[in-house]
Simulated assay, not measured.
Amino acid sequence: MEVFYDNLADWWPVISPLSDYTGECAEIRRVLKALRPEARTLLELGSGGGHVAFHLKADFDCTLTDLSPAMLEVSRRLNPGCRHIRGDMRTLDLDRRFDIVLAHDAIAYMTSEADLRAAFATARRHLAPGGLA
């Protein structure tokens, strides 16, 4: 996977076109707005090339995190107004709370119960009171 998310990161927009996310992100936005209409800040764990954030950034102040510096660079070009931070969803600690913490498909890379628990602990650590993960 390192080759894909590092050496081939610039190909992400071709491999996984932005338009492929339109419908799914519309549904994510609808659910988030229905459950937390007052939410403004969003932390995405494992944001990759930033395709999800591209569709949500008009409604939320997005902070995007990923392990891959190359994928974060792809996302920076697509989402210049969002904060980008290199970090592991299992250990990240930004010393900040968010209205929403989102882990889209990157959560599938948690291949053990311990990794999954660590990612959930990260989400909880970053949630504001009454926040949504």
Rank of each mutant, 00 (worst) to 15 (best):
R77N: 08
A108H: 05
R76Q: 09
I85F: 00
D59Q: 10
Y109M: 09
G81R: 08
M110S: 06
A39H: 02
D115Y: 10
E73C: 03
D10Q: 13
S75Y: 02
T65H: 00
L43M: 12
M89D: 08
I15K: 07
M1I: 03
A119S: 09
L127W: 06
E44Y: 02
G50K: 05
L116C: 09
A103R: 09
D10S: 14
M110H: 01
D61P: 06
P37F: 06
T111S: 14
A106W: 00
T65M: 01
F60T: 00
K33G: 13
N79P: 10
R96T: 08
A58D: 11
D105E: 09
D99A: 09
P80Y: 10
R76V: 09
D6H: 12
K33D: 09
R97I: 08
D115N: 10
P17S: 12
A9H: 10
L116A: 14
I15V: 12
F120G: 15
I28F: 04
N7G: 13
Y21M: 07
D6T: 11
Y109F: 14
A58M: 05
G46W: 00
S75K: 00
L8G: 14
H126M: 02
C25M: 12
H126W: 10
A108Q: 05
E27S: 10
L32W: 09
E24T: 10
S68R: 01
R90D: 09
R40G: 08
P69H: 11
T111N: 14
T41N: 01
L18G: 11
G87R: 07
T22A: 14
C62K: 01
D61M: 07
T91Y: 14
A119R: 03
R90M: 06
G50E: 05
V31K: 00
R125T: 11
P129G: 04
D105L: 13
A26Y: 01
C62S: 06
E73P: 04
T111I: 14
A123C: 12
R117T: 15
G131N: 10
I107A: 14
I85Q: 10
L78A: 08
R86L: 08
H51E: 05
L94F: 13
D88L: 07
A121C: 13
L116W: 10
L78D: 03
S47A: 15
E44N: 00
T65Y: 00
L43Y: 00
A133Q: 05
S112I: 12
L32G: 04
Y21L: 07
F54L: 03
D66A: 01
D93G: 05
A103Y: 08
L35P: 02
D20I: 00
T63Y: 11
T65W: 00
P80I: 01
I85P: 03
C25N: 15
A70L: 04
L127C: 06
A121M: 03
G87H: 04
T91P: 08
A39F: 13
V52L: 06
T65N: 02
Y21V: 01
D10I: 14
G131L: 12
I107T: 13
L132G: 02
L64D: 02
A121P: 09
E113H: 12
A106K: 03
L56V: 00
T22G: 11
G48M: 07
F4K: 11
V14N: 14
L132F: 04
L102R: 00
P129Y: 09
E73I: 06
